[in-house]
Computed example of a mutant assay.
Amino acid sequence: MDIIVCVKQVPDTTEVKIDPATNTLIRQGVPSIVNPFDKNALEAALQLREKHGGKVTVISMGPPQAKDALKECVAMGADEALLISDRAFGGADTLATSYTLAAAIRKVAKFDIILCGKQAIDGDTAQVGPEIAEHLGISQLTYVAKIGVNGEVVTVEREHEDGYEVIETKLPVLLTVVKSINEPRFPTVRGTMKANRKEIPVWTAADLVVQEQRLGLKGSPTQVRKIFTPKQRTQGVIIQRDTARESVAELMQKLTDAKIV
C-alpha cells in the first residue's frame, strides 16, 4: 500500500504575531512546529503500513525551513519526504495550495491513500485536503476517527458531535483525520539519525505540470481585507455577598449599568 501524507509547518500557536501593514502572519524568528493534526495523519499512515505493508511518503509545501518538519516526520517513521518550494507559490490561499500539492501528487503518481489532518491550526479552514481530492478526481472522506482497509475497500468512522457515521468507499481515496484517531508516536533515536542523513528533494514550479496563473497569489481568489489580534479580555468580577439575594441584586445592578439588561 502506497500512502501519501500532506503536512504543513505552522507557527507555534503561543507565538503567533501579525504584521499590521501586510495583514499576514510574521514567521521570521517565530518557532515552528508540525501541524498537530498532520501528526495524527502520519501516525494513521504508519499504522496502515505496519498492518498492510507498503511505503509512506510525506509531502509539504512551504519555504526551505519546512525541511525541518519533514525530517521530524522521517524520524517518526516516514519512508520518503518531499518539499514543494518556490517563490511562485508564495501568497497561496487554499485553492492555489491544493492545486500545487495535487500537481506534486500526480508527479509522484503511485498512491492508494492520501492522508491529511482535518485542518491546519494557523488557518483553521479544513479546505486543503478536500480540494486536493477534487483536483485529483478521487473520493474523499473527512473527520475520520477510524480507518479499516480490506482489499480495495476502505471503511471509516466519521466523527460527528453526536456520534459516528460509518462510510465505505474504494481506493484511491483522500482522508482527513481528527485528533481522536490516535496518539502520534515520538521520533526514535534511530529514526532521528536516519532523518539527519536524509536528503530532502525540493521540487519547484518548473518541476511540475502546472499553469502559472493558478499558482501563489495569482491563483488565489481569496482576498484578506483585514486581520488583527483581538483585544485581551479583562478578568471578570466575582460577586460574593452574605446572601444569594444580595449577590443577585448586585449582579443585576452591574448588568443594568453595563446596559446588558
Rank of each mutant, 00 (worst) to 15 (best):
V261E: 12
K110H: 14
G129P: 04
K146G: 11
L46T: 00
M61D: 05
E152F: 04
E152V: 02
P36G: 03
A104T: 03
R185T: 05
A69Y: 08
K17L: 08
T100S: 10
T142N: 11
Q223A: 09
M193K: 11
G137A: 07
R49G: 04
A104P: 00
E161A: 15
K146N: 15
M76T: 00
L95G: 06
V173E: 09
K8D: 01
A102M: 09
G148W: 08
R185M: 02
K226V: 14
P63E: 02
D93H: 06
G219K: 05
N40H: 14
Q253V: 06
T222C: 11
I59T: 04
L136T: 00
M61H: 02
I33G: 07
Q119E: 13
K170N: 12
K194M: 11
G219C: 04
F186P: 04
A45L: 07
T125S: 13
A75C: 07
K107M: 08
H160M: 15
I238W: 12
R225N: 14
P63N: 02
L251N: 08
P36F: 02
T188W: 09
K231A: 15
L42N: 03
G53N: 03
P184V: 04
Q65F: 10
K67H: 05
E157M: 13
I132N: 03
T22H: 05
P64L: 10
V166M: 13
T22P: 02
Q28Y: 13
V144I: 13
R106F: 04
L25V: 15
G148L: 12
P31C: 10
T176K: 02
P36R: 09
E50T: 01
Q232T: 12
G236M: 06
G77E: 01
L174H: 03
V154Y: 01
D112N: 15
K226G: 12
N35F: 01
Q47D: 10
E72Y: 12
N182W: 07
R241L: 14
K170I: 05
E212V: 07
K39D: 10
I3R: 00
Q127I: 04
V149L: 02
V166C: 09
I260K: 11
K198E: 15
E250S: 05
I181L: 12
S98P: 03
R185D: 00
E152T: 07
V210R: 01
